[in-house]
Design a binder for these strands. Structure first.
Lengths: 152, 152
DNA sequence: CAAGATTGAGTCATCAATCTTA
DNA sequence: TAAGATTGATGACTCAATCTTG
């Protein structure tokens, strides 16, 4: 078995990300729930005390560009899951706030999302494996963005 | 430190994939080399004995849909990096074959690509970490696609 | 009819330019 | 002048429908 392939670990990350994301998206779609990008945005907002974040902050926490987040928030607003309001502290900034309906949609999707992560990913790792993967990849991430922590 | 977050390891995979892919794409672009999707396709073709693969096989090895691969091969063909020919064994199938020019383009991009993987990913892992990540994620992959091996 | 590949049409995502406020 | 956010234009990607051969 060739353990010395310098690209194997990286290829594994690429392939696993692709297969697992597709699987979870399929699960959510089949259950008639919100798409994964909506879930990720709502989850970030729900995870912060006031339920609101500046557009920029939101973009940094998610794997999407600022402009994509802007369009996504427009869609979420149309659905009543998020509200936009100006930041009182800085007139240039916009705060996206999760609504009660947004939290409800998130709550409905959560079981399927968590079950998906479990079934398509966690199930195949021991607790120790998960810890190692988290720690190791956190170090990679630190090199790219020192302030981002994968643990919420 | 909260080691019990059931989503942390998965989030780490998501974020690392995004940050590292973007970094490598930027490196290739700055050096005036082929884009990452072209690299991946050419690499798969170069890695197989005859330098040719059925479109379907190619799609399965890369993180792209069959239709995307079809369009990509059209672009690569226009550039002279790949040739299409019918499979003599099955008239329905098309074989994509890497050309001499394709191998040359791959060879030119390889140093930047490999340096990117090293600088943006491998550098932050010990050899033991890499092995663990590879083995663990290979198990996840096996559950999705039993026949795909991350080691070439 | 099923398998393999390609194409038409539409969605997703980004970059660069623009608008607004600091 | 720069920072924050949005929009116009464009490219990347996918799904479903189609064409061809087994």
């Amino acid at each position: 078995m060739a353990e010395d392939d310098p690209v194997a670990a990286w290829r594994a990350v690429l392939l696993v990300q692709d297969r697992v994301v597709r699987a979870i998206e399929r699960d959510l779609d089949r259950a008639g729930l919100i798409p994964l990008t909506w879930y990720d945005v709502l989850l970030e907002l729900a995870g912060v005390p006031d339920g609101c974040l500046r557009m920029q902050e939101l973009g940094a926490r998610v794997v999407l560009s600022r402009s994509r987040v802007s369009r996504l928030v427009t869609e979420l607003e149309a659905e009543g899951f998020v509200e936009r309001r100006p930041d009182p502290a800085d007139g240039r900034a916009t705060l996206a706030t999760i609504t009660r309906a947004g939290r409800a949609a998130l709550r409905r999707a959560a079981p399927v999302y968590l079950a998906g992560i479990d079934r398509h990913f966690n199930r195949h790792l021991t607790a120790a494996d998960r810890r190692t993967v988290t720690d190791v990849l956190q170090r990679v991430l630190d090199a790219h963005e020192p302030l981002l922590d994968v643990r919420r």
